[in-house]
Design a protein around this nucleic acid. Structure first.
Length: 207
DNA sequence: TGCCAGGCCCTCTTTAGGGCCTT
């Protein structure tokens, strides 16, 4: 973990994008994020961004974000500059974080920015801490844990809000099942680095 | 012409293959 990242504060983020791979020319079209301080949302960020080309019909249908909406949006570089200021040096959380990290890295590379926080992944943690869930898609986990939601999916702020609530469920699971009352971000990262079978023994050893 | 991501994780594995998850 970055030594400059304040404890107990994380940025839970989610990108909507033109596709799956920035290496194939895909760009971000929306970023949403919730700043959690000791589990409580204290700030939010949501902006559409214009990637400079038309998005596919599939992405329009999948996200509900239209080419018309993006035509009126600020360019990616402008939005990502504001987002860089928003995240500061905080650590970061996303569902299937490797996906969002790739786009964050690619978009920040476009504007010459480098962030100092580290990532943790709510999907990898859920696989280890909620092994009985039917699957580990964000929407399925929201239903499995009875997480309150407004029925909006595949929009950046809505998904980051649900991921933030899932993150709190994961912390609660560590508190209730393993009596770990103040799980650190570092511990969350360590859980991800363990195999599913090794996690219970590892967590019991933390006490 | 046909294909086109990448990392994690499980297993009928490790000299591999395929499903999951994100848009």
């Amino acid at each position: 973990m970055s030594t400059s990242a304040p404890a107990n504060t994380v940025i839970v983020l989610d990108f909507e994008t033109t596709g799956l791979s920035p290496n194939q020319g895909d760009r971000a079209i929306e970023i949403g994020a919730v700043m959690l301080e000791k589990g409580q949302p204290v700030a939010r960020f949501q902006e559409l961004m214009n990637p400079g080309f038309r998005i596919s019909r599939f992405i329009e249908d999948y996200t509900g974000i239209s080419n018309q909406m993006l035509k009126a949006a600020a360019p990616c570089e402008e939005v990502m500059t504001r987002f860089y200021d928003f995240i500061g040096g905080h650590n970061l959380v996303a569902h299937n974080a490797s996906f969002d990290q790739r786009f964050l890295d690619a978009e920040f590379a476009q504007i010459g920015c480098r962030y100092s926080g580290e990532f943790s992944c709510s999907m990898l943690l859920s696989r280890r801490l909620f092994p009985d869930a039917p699957n580990h898609k964000l929407g399925s986990l929201v239903a499995y844990k009875n997480i309150a939601n407004d029925g909006v999916f595949h929009r950046a702020l809505a998904d980051s809000e649900m991921t933030a609530k899932l993150w709190n469920c994961l912390l609660e699971e560590l508190q209730q099942s393993y009596q770990l009352h103040t799980p650190s971000f570092k511990l969350m990262q360590q859980i991800c680095s363990k195999s599913k079978a090794a996690v219970p023994k590892f967590l019991h050893a933390q006490n």
